[in-house]
Simulated assay, not measured.
Amino acid sequence: MGKKYSEIPDKLIEFIKAQKIFFIGTATTDSRVSVSPKGMDSLKVLDNNRVVWLNVTGSGNETAAHVQENPRMTIMFCAFEGNPMILRLYGTAKVIHQNDPEWKDLFSLFEPLPGARQIFDVSIDLLQTSCGMAIPYYDYVSEREQLNKWAEKKGEDGIKQYWIDKNQETIDGKPTNIVSMNNLIQA
């Protein structure tokens, strides 16, 4: 059944690398809880207590706003093939915007994705596995390309305008700071 760890053991690093999807959970003390699925080979394990993931432009920007106010983050993985398991990484996250000094080095760890918006740098302080025996089997077919095609069609200027128009605050009205942190001029 479940086990707790203070750092990511090598066998779980391999499990993480094999996953095609993961889920991010964040909230402030007075916001709705956001649980967001992620994919696109956008997560890297840097060491046994640190992961980073590249966030691309989407319809909302809840995670960035939440982390800036309350940096706790949970990352969850589920085994959809092979032996059953759920893995949760608990930690403290920092949002890295494109104008931040850390951006260049961290961004170089990823294959470039159109619409890249932020990087989340997560210090892990606890891991927990649980059985996952109720999680069904699913077959991975391929990545969806719609988001990449949408971002490519918009282009860099169109993406930045989208951030201004659609990504400045959460559904609860909390600021994401994407405009100010990237020195964008509002239209």
Rank of each mutant, 00 (worst) to 15 (best):
Q128F: 02
R88G: 01
P112R: 07
F107L: 11
D100Q: 07
F107E: 02
G91Q: 13
D105G: 08
E81R: 02
R117H: 14
F107A: 14
N99P: 06
Q128S: 07
F107H: 14
M85V: 00
I96R: 10
L126R: 15
G91K: 08
G82K: 05
L109A: 13
A93D: 04
N83F: 12
L106K: 02
E111S: 14
L109W: 11
L126D: 12
W103V: 02
N83I: 04
C78S: 09
F77D: 02
G132Q: 10
I96F: 02
L89E: 05
G115V: 01
P84R: 10
D100C: 02
F120E: 06
F107V: 00
P112Y: 07
M76T: 08
Y90G: 09
P114T: 05
I119H: 04
K94S: 09
L113I: 14
Y137N: 04
S130D: 11
P114Y: 14
I135D: 01
D139A: 10
I86K: 01
I96A: 07
F120C: 05
E111L: 05
Q98G: 13
F120T: 04
F120V: 14
G132T: 00
A134I: 04
S108D: 10
S123Y: 01
F77T: 02
F110Q: 09
L87K: 10
M133T: 08
T129W: 03
M85T: 01
P112Q: 12
C131V: 03
Y90E: 10
M133F: 15
F80Q: 01
F77C: 07
F107Y: 12
L113W: 00
E111Q: 09
Y140N: 03
V122M: 13
A134D: 01
P112C: 11
I135M: 14
G91V: 14
F120R: 00
R88Q: 11
N83L: 07
P114S: 12
P101K: 15
D100N: 08
L127R: 09
V122F: 10
K94V: 15
I124G: 02
I119E: 02
S130C: 02
Y140E: 00
A93F: 05
C131K: 05
V95M: 14
K104P: 01
A93G: 11
N99A: 08
R117A: 04
F110K: 03
T129I: 03
M76C: 15
E102F: 00
V122Q: 10
L127A: 09
Q98V: 09
N83C: 06
E102W: 03
N83G: 06
S130V: 04
L109P: 15
F120H: 15
C131R: 03
Q128V: 11
W103G: 05
L106N: 05
D139L: 05
P114N: 14
R117K: 12
Q128C: 01
P84A: 15
S108C: 10
E111N: 14
P112G: 09
G132E: 09
Y137K: 00
Q128A: 01
L126P: 03
G132M: 05
L89C: 09
V122D: 15
Y138W: 06
L89H: 12
A116Y: 12
P114L: 04
K104H: 14
R88Y: 06
F80H: 08
N83W: 05
Q98Y: 13
D125K: 07
D100F: 06
M76L: 13
A79M: 08
G82D: 08
L113M: 07
S123M: 08
M76I: 02
E102I: 00
F77A: 06
M85R: 00
